[in-house]
Nucleic acid binder design. Structure first.
Lengths: 254, 254
DNA sequence: GGGCAGTTAGTAAGAGAGTAACAACAGAAT
DNA sequence: ATTCTGTTGTTACTCTCTTACTAACTGCCC
């Protein structure tokens, strides 16, 4: 995560909704402080003839100001001002988009009696799904993982809350760091899985919530994580029973 | 500002970086809860054959999950999750873009001895510029306006701060509401301009900061506002002197 | 005249919207 | 079994619009 280059910055501005020319002109003006179309064109490496229209568009977006003179001079708004302008634009769009979605959405199909197994790719998204599934638990949660980064702060807090609410929380890990970290929480029981279970050789995580919700993930060689999960399905129940049969039988307290 | 329609929502999602198809598929899935490509295609009004690739792209963005089965089923992430995903994406881009700009920018050309007059269009941007110019004032601020909406809360707070710092603050308005509102602030003196000055017939605002910074705006018939401003220029000084000659001579305390 | 300012037209390349066709497969009818 | 039918998932292709980029033209001031 090194410091961004100019082209990184241009790309980012493009993803924020500017065109490549707009991004380059804006950056050039921030470098120059202020300048004419010619100045901007040479620094931004944008055809001079295009600077006029691009600047006009940037003026519309509130990112620069125009001096009515000959030659026309341009001046960027302050960095803070530009940032807050873009941000409020984003928030307005976000609001409009999600306001509509909130109106028309229907509950994600009651988690019952559908034999659905879903796939989630990417650590951050799996983090989210883990939190989501644990939040819905009403009786107990079993959490297992080998890699410490898979235990997020948010999960830790949630387990604490859930434990305080009276849920039974069990943590299974071969990693002492994880056992210690989560074991500190009042009411959480930690287990060490037996060494000879090879399905635990692969790193990843397992979450069981109540007796009908399960999530299993694996971490690939390249570090990317993929998870499957299911809630309220027969499939989930069966899988959970299988795991419990193996797990509880061999699990070692502590 | 009525409630958004579907096409408004699609437009907004597009401005947030999705394609039209992506927006429609996402919205359709929020409506459906979950469904197959066929379901989605009919609700989203997107060619079925396109749903697969579009959904894949949405999965990459973390906006939906895929059920590996036949037929493939799709399921959106929760609205909150989608929103925070998009927001953190935005913030990452924003950070990268502005981090670079912060590095390379130069101070906006010391506000001295340049005969520059800048143009700003749009009420919100003029609000910003007003705040900016007042912030830089070191001795005194004169503010004038007829329309109450042109006095923002932020300005009111800033004037209070500046007044507390010992700056001389004068408010000129023909509107009682404005005189009362800003007159409350400790240390602020309010004036009523004489009726016979026709250049005050047009609504708009005037800001004078110290003796070298000035902003003048006019409000068009259609309500749009345009301002010119100048800081540290001879032009500004002269203009200020002109206004003061007229203003202080005829201004009525109160 | 010559260089610079600002404007305009026009081309080229790419992304996205929309259409059409195809192989693989499942179930139903024969 | 076998043919028929409809569906799934994939691919190729067209059309259009935006944007990057080029080139020219007009007017102006020295």
């Amino acid at each position: 995560m090194s410091t961004p280059t100019e082209s990184d910055a241009v790309d980012s501005f493009e993803r924020l909704g500017l065109t490549s020319y707009e991004a380059r002109v804006f950056i050039a003006l921030q470098q120059l402080g202020s300048g004419t179309a010619r100045d901007v064109a040479s620094v931004a490496d944008v055809p001079r003839s295009q600077v006029y229209s691009v600047a006009e568009s940037l003026e519309d977006r509130g990112l620069l100001e125009v001096q009515q003179s000959s030659p026309i001079r341009y001046r960027p708004v302050s960095v803070d001002e530009a940032q807050s302008t873009l941000r409020s634009r984003f928030e307005a769009q976000e609001k409009q988009a999600f306001e509509y979605v909130e109106q028309v959405r229907t509950e994600p199909a009651g988690e019952e009696e559908q034999e659905d197994i879903w796939t989630v790719r990417g650590r951050a998204r799996i983090d989210d799904r883990v939190i989501d599934l644990c939040s819905e638990a009403e009786e107990r949660i079993i959490f297992g993982a080998r890699l410490p980064p898979l235990v997020t702060d948010e999960l830790e807090r949630l387990l604490e809350t859930k434990s305080a609410e009276g849920l039974e929380i069990a943590v299974v890990s071969r990693t002492a760091e994880i056992r210690q970290r989560l074991g500190r929480i009042q009411g959480v029981t930690v287990f060490t899985p037996p060494d000879h279970r090879q399905d635990d050789e692969r790193s990843g995580r397992i979450v069981v919530a109540d007796d009908d919700t399960i999530l299993l993930s694996v971490v690939d060689d390249d570090g990317s994580e993929t998870a499957i999960w299911s809630a309220g399905s027969l499939f989930a129940s069966v899988l959970i029973e299988l795991i419990e049969a193996g797990g509880e039988a061999h699990g070692t307290r502590g």
